[in-house]
Every structure is written in structure tokens, then in C-alpha cells.
Design a protein around this nucleic acid. Structure first.
Lengths: 153, 153
DNA sequence: CTTGAGCCTGTAGTGGCTACAGACCCTATC
DNA sequence: GATAGGGTCTGTAGCCACTACAGGCTCAAG
């Protein structure tokens, strides 16, 4: 459905590859601006919305939180950002990523060892279970979950 | 506070390094068994609870979801697990971790390039912003967020 | 017996969505 | 003009794995 000079939420959703519900959610929390409305109350999006949603999608893909994106977008919106500011945010985020990779690698090491010690027998005994029971904690108490699993998709 | 032959929730919390609220949460969702109670209604934990909470903490550190841990613990509880079963779960999880590392690495590459292209000038222009606006999506539509940020810790 | 720390239950909040219910709109066909 | 079907609207509740209260109770020490 193409409203004169504008996209419906469904078209926008398809074009950028972001769910309709997610777009409405972005509007609600203020990272997407409120679009115009048709006579019947349908949202009508222009090219600036397309650009912005694309920006958000890319940012999310790169692991920026919506809050960080809000920060970036505030800079962009005010046309007041400098390259240095953006660089700082980028580097900060990059450091996060590096840390996460390091965490996951040490995880992988431990898991690999566990799997390797497994005889895969049909016997009711497993070094993996033993390891989980006996292994001393690697990280200091109070940070019990350094790696959160991906939620679904 | 030491109840005769048992630990209070606070002592357990300290000993294993898991928040009191989290322990109660684990009880509520059924990964920790209900402990005994003192006359006044306080939870009283025994050595089996210590072992189990330790198991859960280690599992969480290794990135197992509570649901996966429930699965492992069901096997353990029934004393019916075989090494092969546990191995399968471990390998599956290991594959998840590998995939996540790969995702994060490609993320890092992109972010590094972006940061490197930055002049860090005090001018209101930045290739990072441009990149976010212009970069074509890497992944197919419908999976807008391959990397979710760690929640806090 | 008082004090204060610890514990109890229950509820609500976090992030980033997703999934409904029940109503409304819009277009195409008959 | 009626109707069928899709798309869209709002609002709410759910997901995970916690965390943070509020308002009351218990317990051990002094």
C-alpha cells in the first residue's frame, strides 16, 4: 500500500528488513521520530525515515545498544557532532567487542577441554559433569554470567 | 547466621558468589530445589545445595542458559545421564560459542575500519556516520541484530 | 528488651524486542 | 453499494536472567 508521497509501515519494514512491531517500538522509545499519518491514522514514512531506520539497523548489527544509537543520533540530529566525538564512541564500543571476544575464547578453551575429556561412552559418568561440579570459579564472585547466550535469532 | 546443620541464604550467597535474590529466583523457576526452613521461615541449606548452586554458577559462567542447565541437572538428578548425552549438549553449546566469536570478529573488523577511517578532527563530519548511513546490510533481512550486547556485568 | 542486621514475600523494572487481541482502514471484486 | 481480505491501529503481556525495591518478620547479641 503506497500512500501518496510516502511509505506504509509494512513497506518500510520490508525495505529495511526490520519488523513492523520493532519499528513501532523504536518510535515509542524515541529513536525513530513520529511519522505523519494518513486520514485513517496510518503511519506515513518519508525518505528521512528510511535513512534513519537503516542507520539504526546497521548500528544494531554492529552491536550498538539502542541507547548508544540514541546518543549518536542526537549528535547527528543536532548536526553538532564532530568526528572526534564519534570516534570516541566507536573506540569505546570496539573495546567492548574485543573484551567479549576474549571472554568467549577463554570459554571456548574450557568447553573444548571438557568435550575432549569426554569418552562419549554409554556409561553414567561424565567428566563434564564432574568439571562443572568441581571446577573453581575463574572470575571473581559477583559476576556470575560473563557470557549471555544469543536470545533466539 | 548459622542454623544448626545448615547455611542461611546469605552464607550460601557469599560462599558461592551468587546474589541472594538470584538464589531465590533459581528456586522459583525450579533450578534450585526448595530448601528446608527454620522455625521462623528462613531458608536452610545443606551441602547438596552448595554443590548444586556451584554447578549452576559454573554453567552460567560457561554460557549455558538456565534452560540448558535445567536439562543437564535433570540428567544428573535422575542419575540417568550417559557421557554421550552430556557430550552432545557440550558440543552443541561449543558450536554456539564458535559462531558467536566469528560474528564478533567480523563486527570488530568493520568497526576497526570505521574507526581507522576517522580523522578525529573537530569538524562536523565523520566517515563513521556516513558508513552507518550508507553501508549495505551484511546479513539477510529479518535478522537485524546478530550481536546482542552484554546486559551489564 | 531493645537494636539492628538479616531474611521473608511479592511486585516491578531492565533491554530489545515479539506476540497477541480486538478494533479499524483500505482496496478490489462482485 | 456490499463484502472480503489484507494491512494497520492501540495496548498489553511475554521472553531471559536477573535486580531492586517495599513493608514486614526473625534472629542473635548486648
Amino acid at each position: 500500500m503506497k500512500v501518496a508521497e510516502g511509505l506504509s509501515i509494512g513497506s518500510l519494514s520490508q525495505q529495511i528488513g526490520v519488523n513492523i512491531e520493532t519499528i513501532r517500538y523504536y518510535e515509542k522509545i524515541g529513536v525513530m521520530p513520529r511519522p505523519g499519518r494518513s486520514a485513517g491514522g496510518y503511519r506515513v514514512y518519508g525518505p528521512e525515515h528510511v535513512k534513519r531506520l537503516h542507520f539504526i539497523r546497521r548500528g544494531r548489527e554492529l552491536g550498538f545498544s539502542l541507547d548508544e544509537l540514541r546518543g549518536l543520533l542526537r549528535l547527528v540530529d543536532g548536526h553538532s557532532y564532530t568526528c572526534a566525538e564519534v570516534h570516541a564512541l566507536t573506540v569505546e564500543h570496539l573495546e567492548d567487542i574485543r573484551q567479549k571476544i576474549a571472554d568467549l575464547k577463554s570459554l571456548k578453551r574450557v568447553m573444548s577441554n571438557m568435550a575432549a575429556s569426554c569418552t562419549r561412552d554409554q556409561i553414567p559418568e561424565c567428566p563434564v559433569i564432574d568439571a562443572l561440579y568441581k571446577m573453581p570459579p575463574v572470575r571473581p564472585p559477583g559476576s556470575p554470567a560473563p557470557a549471555r547466550r544469543a536470545p533466539s535469532g
